[in-house]
């Protein structure tokens, strides 16, 4: 079935040629030939489409890097945005992205893994479980900007979290929750049932099985999902604009480690912020060419970040697939 089409059809041709009755039917042979050619043309066509797609991808990436090359240096990373394009940098943007990702990953990891375990191991078949599953499927299809509107109404105006890192992290955390839930469930599903039964027969309780067996075995899958979720969240722009993230920030959030007791501070959660994609959007939407260069450089960094995260996820998936042989 999966042999290459040409080989198979050649075989068929040979049989046809040897058979004296069929060989007379020139028409049939011609038909077969034209079918073979069409098969191969499609093969070529599909290949060309893939080549074209890769070419477009390549054009996109190289355009970003070539245009942004002059700004891709250390100074760019250590300067605040500025009205002068050549002096502007992305310090506040990448620190902001980092802080928001920290909140996002903790929120989505905790909630996502717990929900995944509940649905896969605990949930009874009832209306609640059905509703939760329906909600998850729908969450993945809701436009991301709607999450922003929800966060603006609830986190900003109801809970008074303000337009802060905390609000942004929570918003993106809920946005990527379905990714983590789905990968957690997949990972749990791939653990064979006899393992659970063996543990039960030794007197383990459900929680002990989850804690000592299921979680360690599925950690690779969960980690892969986490990375994919982060790669999605780090580039997400629309919901953060909607909650009112500022586009011009020339200060850093409060450092998490203080010199005075209690030494650890969570003040930064309440600080204003900007993130890489918003900074890029801000520069793209300005008319001056010089700002477009800054946008290209930011885009190049953002793209590298997502590509590295994705490559990491693919590598992890590959590595963990080889690790356990049930």
């Amino acid at each position: 079935m999966r042999k290459s089409p040409m080989k198979k059809d050649k075989n068929r041709n040979n049989i046809m040629a040897k058979d004296p009755i069929l060989a007379k039917h020139n028409k049939t042979e011609k038909l077969i030939k034209s079918k073979n050619i069409k098969d191969q043309l499609f093969y070529l066509f599909g290949f060309l489409i893939l080549v074209a797609a890769s070419f477009i991808l390549f054009a996109l990436i190289s355009d970003l890097f070539i245009r942004g090359a002059s700004r891709l240096n250390f100074d760019f990373l250590t300067h605040f945005p500025s009205r002068k394009p050549e002096a502007a940098g992305i310090l506040s943007a990448w620190v902001g992205s980092l802080a928001v990702m920290l909140v996002t990953s903790s929120v989505s990891l905790v909630l996502g893994v717990m929900t995944g375990i509940y649905l896969e191991e605990y949930a009874p078949k009832n209306i609640f479980t059905f509703l939760i599953e329906l909600a998850i499927v729908n969450m993945a299809g809701i436009p991301s900007i709607t999450f922003g509107l929800m966060a603006l109404g609830i986190f900003v105006y109801q809970f008074n979290f303000g337009q802060s890192i905390l609000t942004a992290g929570l918003t993106l955390g809920l946005l990527v929750l379905p990714i983590i839930i789905v990968t957690t469930r997949e990972a749990l599903k791939s653990i064979p049932n006899h393992l659970r039964e063996a543990a039960y027969s030794l007197g383990a309780s459900k929680y002990q099985i989850v804690r000592d067996h299921l979680l360690p075995y599925s950690s690779g899958g969960i980690l892969t999902g986490m990375i994919l979720a982060l790669s999605r969240a780090v580039g997400e722009t629309a919901p953060l604009i909607t909650i009112g993230a500022l586009t011009f920030i020339a200060f850093l959030p409060t450092p998490p480690i203080q010199s005075t007791p209690p030494f650890v501070s969570f003040e930064w959660l309440w600080d204003g912020f900007t993130v890489l994609p918003i900074q890029m959007f801000n520069w793209v939407s300005r008319p001056q060419e010089e700002f477009h260069i800054n946008a290209a450089a930011t885009g190049a960094i953002l793209l590298m970040l997502t590509l590295i995260l994705n490559a990491g996820a693919i590598w992890l998936r590959y590595k963990f697939r080889k690790r356990y042989h049930w």
Binding site: L64, V234, G235, E236, A238, A296, L303, T306, L307
Partner: peptide, 11 residues
């Protein structure tokens, strides 16, 4: 293609 941030696509 699906992983590239949309703001980069906008650019």
């Amino acid at each position: 293609f699906a992983a590239i941030p949309t703001v980069v696509y906008g650019y």
